[in-house]
Amino acid sequence: MTLNFAHRGSLTEAPENTLPAFQQALVHGAKAIELDVQLTKDNYLVVCHDHKLSRFNPSANQRIIDVTLEELKQIDVSAPFGDNFSAVTIPTLDEVLEDCPNDIFLNIEIKNIPVIYNKIEERLIHCLSEHNRFNNIVISSFDHVALKNIQTVVPSVPLGMLFYYRILNPWEYAKQSGLNITSIHPNHVYTDQHFIEQCHANGYQVYPFTVNKKERYHELVSYGVDGVFSNNPEIFSQTKA
């Protein structure tokens, strides 16, 4: 089965990583969504990719780690979409889990680089426990120590290992890590048939990021990829048995 993820929701149609973006992805029929989590100054889990919000609101130059949730909720991140949206704010993970149906597969990425969030893993596990949401998820990160910390608390939770740059035999690295890795998430630019076959041979699914061109997507499907992360609704709305 090819399972494609709406990357930060439908970010070309609504402010990324917000409730409208996730809702729009569901309108397209997305079966899987990728989102990013960070911690505010007062230790609330919020859903955002960037460590600063200036890309969405030029006047918001603070880091998420330096503002409280109340302060964060005063920042409108809808500016890039003009009059189509207004007063859209960064959601908490609690809000997203309350809004997202349980049958939607969630990839929750811990954004632990360049900021290292103290005990974000424990807070994430607590949040998922509060919502009884350990099914139909994978927790991923470029910070593989964060993945280890997650596994220490909940050994059975599926983990996705993110790689930006090429490394030698990442499937072997994943195997030697001792972690409960279920999927490898590479940059699509170096993902080829050999890469996918070697990951499969070692028991890992492969979900490359970020695949927006349909030609590239169909090429990866021909190689046997398990799915992709995409900003393109024509891709992330497709799920093949």
Rank of each mutant, 00 (worst) to 15 (best):
M1E: 14
M1Q: 12
M1V: 15
F5L: 11
F5W: 03
H7K: 05
R8I: 13
R8Q: 11
G9F: 04
L11K: 15
E13L: 10
P15T: 13
P15C: 09
E16W: 07
T18C: 11
T18R: 01
L19N: 01
L19Q: 04
P20R: 07
F22G: 06
Q23Y: 12
V27F: 09
V27Q: 13
A30I: 09
E34A: 11
L35I: 08
D36H: 08
D36S: 11
D36C: 10
V37P: 00
V37I: 13
V37F: 02
Q38L: 09
L39I: 08
T40E: 07
T40C: 14
N43T: 08
V46T: 01
C48D: 00
C48L: 05
H51C: 07
R55S: 13
F56Q: 14
N57I: 05
A60S: 13
N61E: 15
R63D: 15
R63Q: 15
I65S: 15
V67Y: 12
L69W: 06
E70K: 14
L72F: 05
K73C: 11
K73H: 11
I75N: 01
I75F: 12
V77M: 10
S78D: 05
S78H: 01
P80E: 00
P80T: 03
G82N: 06
G82R: 02
N84C: 15
F85L: 12
F85H: 12
I90Y: 05
D94L: 01
D94G: 00
E95Q: 15
V96C: 11
V96M: 11
E98R: 06
D99H: 10
P101E: 08
N102G: 10
D103E: 15
D103R: 13
I104H: 10
F105K: 13
L106T: 00
I108F: 11
I108N: 09
E109V: 10
K111R: 04
P114N: 01
V115I: 14
N118S: 14
I120S: 10
E122L: 15
E122Y: 12
H126Q: 14
L128I: 09
L128K: 04
S129Q: 14
S129C: 06
E130T: 12
N135K: 11
N136M: 06
I137A: 08
I137Y: 12
I137G: 08
V138W: 05
S140M: 07
F142Q: 08
F142E: 09
V145T: 09
A146R: 02
L147T: 02
K148M: 05
N149Q: 07
V153Q: 10
P158T: 02
L159K: 04
M161C: 07
M161T: 00
F163T: 01
Y165N: 13
Y165M: 10
R166E: 14
R166A: 12
I167F: 03
I167Q: 08
W171D: 02
W171R: 01
G178R: 01
G178P: 02
L179G: 01
I184D: 04
I184V: 14
I184S: 04
P186V: 07
N187T: 07
E197T: 11
Q198V: 01
C199M: 11
C199H: 05
H200I: 07
N202L: 03
N202R: 02
G203D: 06
V206P: 01
F209E: 00
N212L: 06
K214T: 14
E215I: 09
R216N: 12
H218A: 00
L220T: 00
S222A: 14
Y223C: 04
F229Q: 09
S230K: 02
S230A: 10
S230D: 06
E234N: 15
I235K: 09
T239M: 02
